[in-house]
């Protein structure tokens, strides 16, 4: 018995140590990032510092000035551009994702099963490989260099449709829709005023993931906005940050990274419960 208790606590101890070590590895780079954003470049290149300095505001000022000078866009403007894309894209994604899921869940019509099978199948298509064609579409529609090609495609997000449909199958009773119909509610009105409010929890989850994906996207924006440096988004700014100078001001670079990480970290720690639950739900797709 004694031995078993001993074995029990050793197993637990080992597991705790591994978990704490992994957590340390997850946090450590961000820790250095925060510390270094407050130090002057001359100190950063001498090794790891564990205490913050007082150079943050200077770094930030240099960062803004350097941005304005080299590309005409500073970090705050770049984040604003990202917001201009991400907010409408996220709204379109959850609204039309819900509408499409509602169409194939609540209605019976010819081709419905085909549509659903189609949406299911296209989830697996790698999207970025068709950039050559995507640029072609941008040129044909005269949308190249604008934010529209980064916003409008959010309407067709198969994973959102999939997620919303899963949710509707358990969380939406068709009787309510039938009752609304008897009361004379028009179909579109029923969706907007009765169905959508019922989908709030699922929409919130999808909104978080849609927002993060769009906000972090680098590949497509850097191709579509390629020549329009003035329209640069936040990830493009980060990419440019590294390329800036031969004589690197590390304080400025770390400061720029910190500014781009901060909103995400704040959002994450406020919403982490929902995010973790959302990741779990997304995986149980059987």
């Amino acid at each position: 018995m004694d031995q078993e208790v001993k074995g029990y606590s050793t197993v637990k101890l080992v597991r705790y140590i591994v978990c704490i070590l992994l957590c340390f590895i997850s946090i450590f780079p961000f820790f250095i990032l925060i510390i270094n954003s407050t130090l002057p470049s001359s100190k950063i290149v001498t090794g790891i510092k564990l205490l913050p300095g007082s150079n943050f505001m200077t770094n930030f000022k240099n960062l803004i000035e350097a941005g304005n000078k080299t590309s005409g866009v500073n970090v705050m403007q770049a984040m604003w551009h990202s917001l201009l894309i991400t907010v409408p894209a996220t709204i379109l994604q959850i609204y039309f994702g819900s509408l499409t899921a509602y169409a194939v869940t609540a209605y019976k019509f010819k081709g419905r099963n085909f549509m659903w099978g189609f949406i299911y199948a296209i989830m697996m298509i790698p999207t970025q490989v068709s950039v050559v064609g995507f640029i072609k579409v941008c040129n044909l529609t005269h949308l190249y260099g604008t934010y529209w090609p980064l916003i409008i495609p959010a309407i067709a997000a198969p994973t959102t449709v999939y997620f919303m449909k899963q949710y509707m199958e358990t969380g939406l009773s068709l009787e309510i829709i039938e009752a609304a119909r008897i009361d004379g509610s028009k179909e579109f009105y029923t969706f907007n005023k009765i169905v959508l409010p019922l989908l709030k929890p699922a929409m919130a989850t999808q909104a978080i993931f849609g927002f993060v994906a769009s906000w972090n996207n680098l590949y497509i924006p850097s191709l579509v906005l390629g020549t329009e440096r003035k329209e640069m988004t936040m990830p493009m700014f980060v990419a440019a940050l590294k390329a800036n100078d031969k004589e690197r001001d590390w304080g400025q670079i770390y400061c720029g990274l910190f500014v781009t990480v901060l909103p995400l970290l704040v959002m994450y720690f406020i919403l982490s419960k929902y995010i973790i639950a959302g990741v779990a739900l997304g995986g149980v797709k059987e």
């Binding site: 509602y102 169409a103 949406i119």
Partner: peptide, 10 residues
């Protein structure tokens, strides 16, 4: 209506 609602996506 179901068909119409799915049109924008497609």
């Amino acid at each position: 209506y179901g068909f119409m609602f799915a049109v924008p996506f497609f």
